[in-house]
Amino acid sequence: MKVTRHILLLGFGLAYVYPFLWALGSSLKTPMDFLDSGLSLIPAEMRWENYAKAWDQASFGTYFVNTLVISLVTVVFTLLLTAMAGYALARHTFPGRKTLLFVIGATFLLPHGYTIIPVFDIVKALGLLDTIWSVILVQVGGGLVFGTFMFMAYFQAMPKELEEAARVDGAGYNTLFFRVILPLSRPMAATLGLFTFIGSWNNFFLPLVFTLGKPELRTLGVGLYAFTSQTSTNWTLLCAAAIISLAPIVVVFVVAQRYVVDAIAGAVKA
């Protein structure tokens, strides 16, 4: 029974990630080998230099630190602000709550089509053009509705006993939030943090637009995007670039995963 389950999970999983394995294999092929070897995973000869070339061409070296800083700061602010708002919406009634919920719902539905010009004008008015803060601010600002929505749903589903116990002990609004609620929300924080990190890591449009005057502030997403929009694309290098940009996120995922598991364990003990 156990073995069958693992065989199923592994077999299905292999098919599931086959495109990535194929990209990994292709990243080490020669262009000709790539065209001739069909869906096979194993390169005829290993071309490790593809990685060095992709690294250079997409300017990954230059952009790595920018991307890391922007992504991490975006995650921290997004989590803090959305957890606060989600908590307030889930656990408290106040005048204006219904309106706020309606507006949140509506912003999901209304398309965010051609909004880059107004956003650009705001960032310009704030004097933040060509700084990493502009990218962070716009990314955080744009992601709050989603995060708040998620936290709200999460808090609503959470049992209230702990909170009530703490309230009986005389805990105030802030103590309750920072000492009781926030630690309990680690699974959702890890989940949302992961998604925010991924989104920020892969984003290319905002970093491109808000660092126009200072290309040295660009991120990996911009470098990778430039790669995909070339004319005579070198597919093997593209695969190498994709693998490079993928690696850090996979690491983050594995770490965040463990965190989720720990968080549950902690919650159960408490």
Binding site: V103, V119, I122, V138, V140
Partner: peptide
């Protein structure tokens, strides 16, 4: 405190999501 907790969310969302939608 509820309003304080909601303020950053409400302000940033108004400025970077809702206003641009209406501006466009």
């Amino acid at each position: 405190w509820t309003y304080v907790y909601l303020a950053p969310f409400a302000i940033l969302t108004s400025v970077f999501v809702i206003y641009p939608i209406f501006a466009s």
